[in-house]
Amino acid sequence: MGHNTYMKSFTLWFLLISSLLLSWQIYAVSGENYVDYSKFSKELAQELQQDITKLEELEDEDSFYEKDFDYSSFSARVTDRDKTSNIIKISSENRNIKFFRAGDEVLFNIASMKDREKCEGHVRSVEDKYFVIFVKDLIPCWGKSEYFRRGTVLVVKSFRLAERVREASIYRGILLKRKKSFFKQLNSVNHFVWSYNQQKVKVAAEYDKEIMRIRKKKQRALEELQLNKKDQIVLQKELIQRLDGVDEDLDFYRIEKDELQVDRWHLDQDLGVPVGNRPIKAKPKL
């Protein structure tokens, strides 16, 4: 009758649903985004940021939820009880009882005594195909003197369960959307993994083509540089020859002013200096 591993996982899962729905309600009222949409893909994040009324439309997408069906009512059977008959363990073929949580209110009648009032109980724990409730008083639906037998068939009514089923159907629609998004991403990943060799060859070919283009460009540049070198060598020789010619012309056309020492007798006559008619020998320098 205690909690098992399934109950713990169910509790954690249902807390996740409740927190998610609460976040959507807060977002709808205050206009603030309290959900970390960065954890989802972009497309899924856009879908999750819808109004709750739009999310309800997801119920029709393979959520197995029927709006016209009464999920609050189901039949069950008493399988065990304590001596006081206040704690009752109930089995049911209704698999939606997994959505019960501790503290949920349930109303029930005895199947053979539907004309009597309903008894009120509260869920204590949930197991696979079983749930345990606490009933304060069985008199309204059972009576005082009759022994509450194991195997008694009950007709259970729980509006909270119906609400939880509806919430679960909405969340299942979201999960389906998320699954589709994951499948889409997985398909893209698989396509990349499966076509890796082709992609590798394609990328290598593109880079080989680029390398060949660069090599040709390099070769062409080197050839142009070699031709330019030859032209520069020819130009160098031509410039050297022209420079030599210019140097010769500069030497030829250099203007010089010489002071005559021997053949200057006629110049002295022009100056009126007393000299002889013939030039004389030059005096030796001391």
Rank of each mutant, 00 (worst) to 15 (best):
I240A: 09
C119T: 01
Y147P: 07
R242I: 01
K129H: 06
L44R: 00
Y253I: 01
E117I: 03
Q198V: 04
L107S: 10
R278F: 04
S181V: 01
S125V: 01
L44K: 00
A205E: 13
L138K: 09
F64L: 14
E59L: 08
G121W: 01
R278G: 10
K129W: 09
I170S: 00
Y207T: 08
K177H: 06
L107V: 08
Q232E: 05
Q185G: 07
F64C: 14
F159T: 08
V135D: 02
Q50C: 13
I170W: 00
K230V: 09
D247E: 14
F159M: 13
F252P: 02
T79N: 06
Y6Q: 15
E93G: 13
I139R: 09
A76R: 04
W265H: 03
G276V: 04
E66V: 02
V126L: 11
M113I: 07
D251W: 11
L58T: 05
R101W: 04
E127R: 15
R164T: 00
T84G: 13
H191N: 14
K129A: 06
L239N: 11
T152K: 04
K157P: 00
K283R: 15
N96T: 12
G151L: 02
P279W: 12
Q232M: 12
L12C: 13
E223Y: 14
F134L: 10
W265I: 05
L44E: 04
